[in-house]
Amino acid sequence: LTSHSDIVQRCNHPKRQIIGGLPYGDLVIKLSVATVVKFGAGVSGEEADNQRRAFDLLDGSVVRVPRVIDFFTWTDGGYTKGYLVMEYIDGDILESVSSYQIDQIVKILSHFSTIQCQRPGPLQTGVSRGLLWEENGKPNFETVKQMEHWLNLRLPGVESKLALERYPLVLCHLDLAPRNIIWLKDGSVCLLDWASAGFYPRFFEICLLKIME
């Protein structure tokens, strides 16, 4: 593995090989035939921890998770960016999928539901991140009751409040956009971007899919 300074230089090079990300946001570039780096102000140690935990928890025969190789931060000119170095997995990102591929996603979600935890929040400890949380801060929940209270406070005028304690907390990805799903040539599936993942009621995953439609 090359040094951190070399990786930063590669990321800043005008001829860098960009393979993912957003033009004015976090980017993914290829470092070698086997490694890539995701970098930017939005790339955090918590995301790296989440991805490591997902790699450990999930059955690779059901869904692939890129192995995390390294994470570090680098400050230059007063701006700090995170650098997440990981395994490169070759495949295709599709905007539309077949019924067979939809069945594969359903199988992955079913596998997710077998992995449970008593405490809500990220796969590792820390604050909840993603579309459900960040507009109103990044909460750190100890119990389902705390999460339920936090969400209900943000549903003014709604007569029927959320009651979450009856739902098991299962592994959720919470960002299953097409850009985060790699379809490999051998028929297997790899999921990217584990920044929002955590243990939540399963219907949270469905809600986020609806929001992203």
Rank of each mutant, 00 (worst) to 15 (best):
T2N: 08
S5I: 10
S5T: 11
V8R: 02
C11L: 07
P14E: 14
K15W: 14
K15H: 12
I19D: 15
G21P: 11
L22W: 15
P23N: 13
P23K: 14
G25K: 15
V28E: 08
V28P: 00
I29L: 06
V36H: 04
V37P: 01
V37C: 04
E46W: 02
E46N: 12
E47S: 11
A48Y: 09
R52H: 13
L58G: 15
G60A: 12
V62P: 04
P66N: 04
P66K: 03
P66V: 01
V68Y: 01
V68P: 01
F71L: 02
W74F: 07
W74C: 03
G77W: 03
T80D: 01
Y83E: 07
V85S: 04
M86W: 06
E87P: 06
D92N: 11
E95I: 06
S96E: 14
S98H: 12
S99C: 14
Q101N: 09
Q101W: 08
I102A: 14
I108P: 01
Q118V: 14
P120F: 06
P122Q: 14
Q124A: 15
T125E: 14
V127F: 12
S128F: 00
G130K: 00
G130A: 05
E134N: 02
E135P: 00
G137W: 12
E142C: 09
V144C: 03
H149N: 09
W150V: 03
L151C: 10
P156V: 12
P156C: 13
P156R: 05
P156T: 12
G157E: 06
E159W: 11
L162F: 09
A163G: 01
A163H: 01
L164I: 09
R166D: 02
Y167A: 01
Y167N: 00
P168R: 14
P168T: 08
L169W: 02
V170Y: 06
C172Q: 10
H173I: 07
H173N: 13
L174A: 08
L174T: 07
L174I: 05
L176S: 07
L176M: 12
L176F: 01
P178C: 09
R179L: 04
I182P: 08
W183S: 12
D186N: 15
A195T: 07
S196C: 09
S196H: 03
G198M: 04
F199N: 05
F199C: 03
F199H: 04
C207M: 12
L208W: 03
L208V: 11
L208M: 13
L209W: 11
I211Y: 15
I211D: 13
M212Y: 15
